[in-house]
């Protein structure tokens, strides 16, 4: 990353103002974590984390975040491919729509999902009449809400990689007689693999931490829809030690995944 030494030589030390502002920027991320660590009841941690509320929420969070990531991969990669490679009218609008969940308050997303996919919703009502399926207040509803919020991370990462990919490699493979699927499988996917993995990791991490859309669309019931972030929120009202302990688990799990994968795959970003 910092291989451009010749230009930097003259200025070994970064300017003080950069260090101060950059340091303050870092503090924005570090201070809340320190606050959490200071408030953690370390000696009671095992007891706090072995309660059935926490175990149920952890299991539900893992299942739903992995399911959301799988769905995002299944639909998000084709969507990214279409956006990167097919020049269709309204492509920039589609790009905007896909990135909307990144900036939308998740609660707004959750409410929109409720009005669209709820029992009395635009799509939800015919769906319910045809199949008897009710998404709100179900585990499947959690997966839908987290997919909505998290999938953009996968789509924009993979789309960016596809756009930057030198298409001559694919062209060469095709010239040599490789069919469409072979090109995709043997050339395209391996070349974008780092971005794909980075996108999957980000998607999973966002899904794992999702709160607003989940509670608004899927509600909050232990064992069915109460994921770890919801358990933290509810516990903050009554049992702050448990809330802090669960928050710590979320921070540790997310940090391990992000740091462990950073050096291997994040260069793609």
């Amino acid at each position: 990353m910092n291989d451009d030494k010749p230009q930097r030589r003259s200025e070994r030390r970064p300017a003080l103002v950069l260090v101060v502002l950059g340091g303050l920027g870092l503090l924005v991320f570090v201070v809340p974590l320190v606050g959490l660590l200071v408030r953690t009841p370390w000696s009671r941690l095992p007891e706090l984390l072995s309660g059935d509320v926490v175990i149920d929420a952890l299991r539900l969070s893992l299942v739903t975040s992995l399911a959301a990531t799988a769905i995002a991969a299944l639909m998000g990669v084709p969507l990214a491919w279409l956006m990167a490679r097919v020049d269709f009218p309204g492509r920039s609008i589609v790009r905007g729509l896909v990135t909307l969940p990144l900036v939308l308050p998740p609660v707004v997303g959750g409410a929109a999902l409720l009005f669209a996919l709820g029992r009395r919703g635009l799509v939800g009502e015919p769906l319910n009449e045809a199949t008897g399926l009710v998404l709100p207040f179900s585990t499947l509803g959690v997966v839908v809400a987290t997919t909505f919020v998290a999938m953009p991370f996968l789509v924009i990462t993979v789309e960016g990689a596809l756009r930057n990919l030198d298409q001559r490699y694919e062209g060469a493979a095709a010239t040599l007689g490789a069919g469409r699927w072979t090109v995709l499988r043997r050339v395209t996917l391996p070349m974008i693999a780092p971005s794909l993995v980075a996108g999957l990791v980000l998607t999973w991490a966002r899904a794992f931490g999702e709160f607003g859309a989940t509670i608004t669309f899927a509600g909050n019931l232990q064992g069915r829809t109460q994921t770890l972030p919801l358990a933290v929120f509810v516990a903050l009202e009554s049992d702050r030690d448990t809330a802090v302990a669960v928050s710590l688990v979320m921070v540790v799990v997310s940090l391990i995944v992000l740091v462990a994968l950073r050096d291997r795959w994040w260069r793609a970003l």
């Binding site: 207040f137 509670i215 509600g219 909050n220 019931l221 829809t225 929120f233």
Partner: peptide
């Protein structure tokens, strides 16, 4: 089926 965080929700 759900325990909502507040009466508004």
């Amino acid at each position: 089926d759900t325990n909502e965080p507040d009466v508004r929700a």
